[in-house]
Design a binder for these strands. Structure first.
Lengths: 202, 202
DNA sequence: GCGAAAGTTGCGCGCTCTGCAAAATTTCCT
DNA sequence: AGGAAATTTTGCAGAGCGCGCAACTTTCGC
């Protein structure tokens, strides 16, 4: 956290403001495609040009929170990779994001719905997942003693990201039964056991 | 193959022509972002407006072949799902696309490189994978006696798509050692065994 | 052939995103 | 504090995108 200057903090604040403004407007209008960059900039109190200095497009602004999460995830994995098997590091880093505790469930659901309904948001989010994949792949390769273009680290990491995404989606639709952490653990467990294996209980 | 009329065939031909024109131009210029919709339309001998009748954007045109492949894949899975366990159906449908036999390796490599270098193409391709996911999810849920919003069918299908994508990428970088089919089979096998399990030979 | 259906095209329009240079703001040094 | 330097904000201009609309042309079924 090299939060040295006032400048840094102000920039981060502006970026966050643009992100939440985008979210607010998209929710209000019921779709990101009904929101223009001009409106977002006005809502956040900056010029349109400044909006585009911070984000390449409104989808990225909408997903600003998500991007911060993936950044935290990468950091979490990097720290854990030194002390844990990489698979456990991936799982525990995912659990320790504690999305459930940090964010309002109603808003999470709403956001998920908007993403699901918008091709452009689906693309942007998928793209960010691919960036995440690329960022973490090196760590996984190192940890497993393989090279980044071998199959194994890619399959392992791919499975982990699928497990994360699936667990989150599932928990959102039914947050009562289990905690998010439990759902993530269950999700990862399926891949440990072998996806074609029937669950132990059956 | 309900190729009844001349109209259908002509439309398919125009679409394919636009696709290959996009590919040609992107290769020639070394990047999709250096190609405009106007140029593509001119290259294919239609108006710019017509181009946008066929494709929502140039990225989709670039990936026209890819989209046809995913369509064939869905069809393959649907047919096999009646006779095979769903996991095998997914694997065998992937193998039977026979990309290696149908397309020129040099061009495949070139395309892969262009996609990898372009954020917009990565997003578009990821988006198409998500569409594929959605299309096949119902089949997987039916086959496993689960519901589409349960975790299991999503994890299974996610693993299968990761296996497909990873195998293809890997085979492209090193097509000599094994056939594509073998690579795909090996990729799927990792998920059958459990991603955290060491390979049998080790 | 001929009418209906479907495909193609040009035009207009609002929006996106970027480069550029001037203006405003913050930081730093003395 | 005072002023120079560095950084950020902003407006403007411009290429490009993607879609609705209304002609125009082609194809289809009879």
């Amino acid at each position: 956290m090299a939060e040295t200057g006032l400048r840094e903090r102000k920039k981060a604040a502006t970026k966050a403001a643009l992100g939440t403004a985008t979210l607010r407007l998209a929710i209000a209008k019921g779709g990101i495609e009904l929101v223009t960059a001009d409106e977002i900039a006005a809502e956040a109190g900056v010029s349109t040009r400044t909006f585009h200095n911070y984000f390449p497009n409104k989808e990225a602004a909408f997903l600003h929170d998500f991007h911060e999460m993936t950044t935290a995830f990468v950091e979490g994995v990097r720290e854990r990779a030194a002390h844990q098997p990489i698979w456990d590091a991936l799982r525990d880093a995912a659990i320790d994001l504690r999305i459930n505790e940090r964010m309002d469930l109603g808003e999470i659901k709403c956001r998920e719905q908007l993403v699901h309904a918008s091709p452009s948001l689906i693309k942007e989010q998928s793209g960010q997942f691919m960036d995440l994949f690329t960022e973490v792949l090196g760590l996984v390769a190192d940890a497993t003693g393989t090279r980044p273009d071998d199959m194994y680290p890619r399959l392992l990491l791919g499975a982990a990201l699928v497990a994360m995404k699936t667990a989150n989606e599932h928990w959102i639709t039914d947050p009562g039964a289990q905690t998010l952490g439990e759902v993530i653990a269950a999700s990862f467990a399926v891949f440990e056991r072998g996806v074609t294996q029937p669950p132990p209980a059956a």
